[in-house]
């Protein structure tokens, strides 16, 4: 209110912007936002795990056979795919630590490797879908199988999009040891996608 009474010089509003932001927490807004978003994502996966639980454990269909007779899960292909995704977390971590040390080549190499591994994972999944021998319309086993792996695949796709943006920016030289928020936040998301896959893999393929 006080400033309304101030004499107002012409041109004074040329540089008028918001007052300097006062941060009341040590956590940066973007990182906090990403963690809250991930909390919400975990709950979305939670809904898919819940329907899986109801369909399989509470309902006990197919005379107790899960998967129903005649259905086979490609456990070993998925295991190799799991290893691919887990190693992509390692390369992501490498990219992240590299830029913190100012190693731009490490950042670029790490991001490109992560991108390739992630894309391989997704491609393998698409091919696997095609060769499964069952489709979404075949029983609640197939519904939950495609539901959980499909939801996860969609997240891999989103993660890859974020990584692609980060890679473009990395090659344009935008990140530095002081400014690498984008890599850090994209990295958090990618690690989340990887950890989620391990839970999905164990539930859908192994149990």
């Amino acid at each position: 209110m006080s400033s309304h009474a101030e004499p107002h010089e012409p041109g004074a509003f040329e540089h008028h912007g918001p007052p300097p932001i006062h941060y009341s927490s040590r956590v940066s807004p973007a990182v906090l936002g990403m963690f809250l978003f991930i909390a919400s994502e975990i709950m979305l996966f939670g809904a898919f795990f819940t329907v899986y639980f109801f369909d399989r454990v509470v309902n006990k269909p197919f005379n107790g056979h899960w998967p129903p007779e005649g259905f086979h899960r490609p456990v070993y292909v998925a295991l190799i795919n799991t290893l691919i995704l887990v190693s992509s977390s390692a390369t992501m971590h490498w990219a992240d630590t590299s830029i913190k040390k100012g190693n731009r080549a490490g950042l670029q190499a790490g991001l490109v490797l992560t991108l390739c591994l992630g894309a391989t994972f997704l491609a393998t999944q698409v091919i696997e879908y095609h060769r499964l021998g069952f489709a979404t319309k075949d029983t609640s086993f197939a519904s939950t199988f495609f539901g959980l792996t499909g939801l996860h695949g969609a997240h891999v796709f989103v993660g890859l999009t974020i990584l692609l943006v980060m890679t473009i920016r990395a090659f344009r030289g935008h990140f530095s040891p002081e400014h690498h928020h984008g890599v850090e936040i994209g990295g958090i998301y990618w690690h989340f996608v990887d950890v989620m896959w391990i839970v999905v893999y164990v539930t859908v393929y192994l149990l």
Binding site: V51, D55, K137, T139, S140, A142
Partner: peptide
């Protein structure tokens, strides 16, 4: 929506789905 569009059986009892699961979720 998937039960309708993709003919899944999340809640369709005919294919091993659990109807009440919807209400819980």
């Amino acid at each position: 929506m998937f039960d309708r569009v993709l003919h899944t059986h999340f809640f369709e009892p005919g294919g091993g789905g659990y109807v009440l699961g919807y209400q819980h979720i």
